[in-house]
Nucleic acid binder design. Sequence first.
RNA 1: GCGGACGUGGCGGAAUCAGGCAGACGCGCUGGGUUUAGGUCCCAGUACCCACCAGGGUGUGGGGGUUCGAAUCCCCCCGUCCGCACCA
Length: 930
Amino acid sequence: MPADTPPHRYDAAMAAAIESRWQAEWETRRIYEVHDAAGDPTRRSNKLFVMDMFPYPSGSGLHVGHPLGYIATDVYVRFRRMCGADVLYTMGFDAFGLPAEEHARQTGQHPRINTEANIANMRRQLDRLGLSHDKRRSVATTDVDYYRWTQWIFLQIFNSWFDPQARRARPVAELAAEFAAGERTRPDGRSWGTLSEAERREMIDGHRLAYVADSPVNWCPALGTVLANEEVTNEGRSERGNHEVFRRPLKQWMMRITAYGDRLLEDLDLLDWPESVKTMQRNWIGRSTGALITFDAVGRAAGIEVFTTRPDTLFGTTYMVLAPEHPLVDELLAEEWPVGVAEAWTGGAATPRQAVDAYRARAAAKSDIARSDSKTGVYIGRDATVPFAQTRVPVFVADYVLMGYGTGAVMGVPGEDQRDREFAEAYGLGVIRTVQPPDDHPCDQAYTGDGVSINSGFLDGLDVDASKALILERLAAAGCGRATVNYRLRDWNFSRQRYWGEPIPVVFDEHGPVALPEAMLPLELPELTDWAPRALARDSDPEPPLGRVSDWTEAVLDLGDGPRSYRRELNTMPQWAGSCWYYLRYLDPGNDKALVDPEVERYWMGDPEPGGVGGVDLYVGGVEHAVLHLLYARFWHKVLHDLGHVSGPEPFKRLINQGYIQAYAFKDSRGVYVPAEEVEGSLESGFEHRGERVARELGKMGKSLKNSVTPDDMYASYGADTLRLYEMFMGPIDQDRPWETRSVVGSQRVLQRVWRNLVDEETGELRVSDEAPDDDLLRLLHRTIDGVRSDMEGMRFNTAIAKLTELNNELTRHHTGAPREVAEVLVRMLAPLVPHFAEELWHRLHGYGAGSVTQADFPTADPALLVTDTVEVPVQVNGKLRGRVTIAADADEADAVAAALSEPNVAAHVNGRELRKQIYVPSRMITLVV
RNA sequence: GCGGACGUGGCGGAAUCAGGCAGACGCGCUGGGUUUAGGUCCCAGUACCCACCAGGGUGUGGGGGUUCGAAUCCCCCCGUCCGCACCA
């Protein structure tokens, strides 16, 4: 620090002092706490519920990219508070998860200790930013008082079924009652009264929204857990850690999210979300309409059911394909090859069994990428019959057909499907075109467009749509097919073989799962001495850590019919569970009677506009949650809505994805990253690290690229307000942008100039004058108020800051200190962006007994000062700018043109030629055409 | 391959919603001043080309179109980023 720095300059040290003083003051005066009860419903139009996606409390702490969204919501919330809004704003922690378990395994420390330490550290880093959260409302998903309600919601879902007629969830008790009353019958016609207890239980369990299924799962031995499909990469490896993943059948809890496919799709239209996120959700749900068609297998009773979106091409079927995992494969396999079978079809194997076994083994060893390279398969030695055409076609096993989509079986139509075409070429299968292609269509390509049906019996001459309609009618009449809707969306695998998650509040008796009664919640995690997840052998079976607690796995409980022994569920919930509903707990975090008081829920989640969709008014977070978190939360919310626990159909009305802050990273000649902070040089001169030339690239900020910049670094060099201002100034909130530490000083200079216009740097005395601002300054002030207000409303903080900077630059040019009236308004406009800085100046202006600037009104522009008597208007001649004239604001076109023509340069370009056209856009532009 | 977003100075970006002065604001850079340490602060300049100035020409990835007027609207192409990916 140079010795001659003025003693009262706004610098990092002064910022630190100001920031800690006002943070303590705000805390003492509890100014960010919002009322606990529901507000006055008649003033609901004034309510505002804003949230950031809550963070996982990572052990490595924050870098400057993390708080971008938090600062943005804080600025917005502070602005809206100053405009009179009733704001609910807080933040919690998504604290269950694998990293805490991994840390625990390394240190021997219970995950809770590490988790709580990380939360404390993160709170410290965030507090330093001056976010205006109501801290009393903060929750962590690991709090027993919190996960008690996560478990409660699980039971609500478990105790519900989806009624397809009503298109909503209903209690299973009602389903049982309908069976008992005979209003609903089993497919086999047996009445409820004749069923055994086991059969009744099975019947009901088969309808629940949360159910146990023995289904193939993604078993990852290295992580010691199964993973959701979403946690597995395209290459068939774990997203976390890139470990091998194997498909294994296992009893798993599933959530019947597919029942809500249509509503999740339809209600996207009600939401104010980025189009890209809606598109991703639509693709994920993957609704497609088509038909299920059953083909008879020659010589077997079993039929092969396929899903197709093109039932009109049925007559073009020349073969069939089953996915390698398809359960019918083993049943349909022929004992031996038919006479004269082609070598290519057998894979050189002696029997169909050997061919299929070898093919399956090869398919399992290949990555999905390799699988997609070429079409391969083997014949299973059996044929099927094409309905109506009555032709015999061979049945293959091929890995280009996926078990996870449709029925896992397809009809091969090489005439109208390019994938089928490629397979047919490879195995010498016939091609029958059933849609007439245009003349210029290449004859070696499938034709997927519209056209007239040919070679299709009763469909000939009809176009695609008419053919589809007629074939569906005939299939239904013949009993071998029907129209259907298929979804790419699968039911949600809800079990994890982990310790550090919510225990599932279910026990098992001899018939299956039994819900714990609500009174037994919370079901707390047992203490473990040996809780660490284990990396297991490749061929091992899934083993949940809770299975190692012998006095917990078996429980003697009285669930209504006396004490009995039950087996506990050993899996825990996935990390998504806690984040599915935390927004509801923010509303009423201390409630021990309900997850949220209904009146409080209605106040904060009800739509301010009558007929609106409701939900959180603004939700800000990263686009990485575009599908999973947001889809799961919407699903839970809809179930809770159906059951009457929440008032609206959607949790998040408006969503903004904040951009990523990227940072330059530097690689040496070996391709190893070097610490970015030690690199010197420039783009022109080249970059060097310890004398060695390094290459620059742009990437995600983080440890692996050695390019992290922490908020703590910025607090030390500039203070929190400068960091806030810089992050908001860098660009639009939803855009990625590169971090540049050397530019941060610009934002500090802006604050320093504001400070200097109000405070004498030598004496610390106030520099404001009591003289009224001159007319130009006053008009600029009100234009600024007007612009800043609308920029803040639209969350365009970068341009709001630019306008404030312009105003301040104008004050700087006066050299005399700011007129009090201007200073006072400027400080209020700065308050949402740089709250500590503004609070300090506010108190210097108004004396230390003044109330917080946080609670002051945001300035309002005087409309009279937004209009001017005269305006400077540019003049175009033949589309080119030739001069400017100053004319009366209310001048008519004739006056404007006359003024324009009197401008020498304009006159020179008109050069006496005849005016062919003249246009005056009031106050904007004069255009002359000659 | 399919879908989405986006291309503006040396850099981040503004103007795009509603066609009307392209480059606000900041970084960087150049020059000057104050101090004197090359730090800080203040002032001026900074898209490119020509010109002493006045001014002129060119310019928003490329090409075309609509219009008195296009960064903005429409069509084609090129490029970058993101998502999905044999979805039958």
